[in-house]
Amino acid sequence: MQFLGTRSAAAAETAHKINEISGQNVGRCMQCGQCSGACPMFATGSLPVPPRRIMHLLQLGHVERAAVLETAWCCAACHACEVRCPRSLDLPKVMEAIRQLTLRRNVDFVAPGAVPRAVLASAPPIAMVAAFRRLTP
């Protein structure tokens, strides 16, 4: 495993913020990888790192590194990981906390104005509502 460095005080504080927003204690994760195996988005091959690695980054306080990876932004909160987690961690909430730390700085992940007209005309409203809830501030 790649050496990720020791945690600074500032990193520890941001990591604590993740626990606060998610209501989960990421320290409880034992890195078994059940979440990664259960994740249908990881199965598509589109995620740069699996959810287990995100949990590891958070445990080490590397919240910023976790936030710039696509993994949390790809999560659709299907809760397949939560069902399998032997520590009963609600991973979709952890992914949401990672997204929130970015979104709360008033950053759009999906800009509503950039969604193609054809998609807006044909996609179900629920797609736009859900995407803007999870991917815009």
Partner: peptide
């Protein structure tokens, strides 16, 4: 309307 104001969904 959606095309003009997609932020409606927010």
């Amino acid at each position: 309307v959606f095309a003009l104001y997609p932020e409606l969904f927010r």
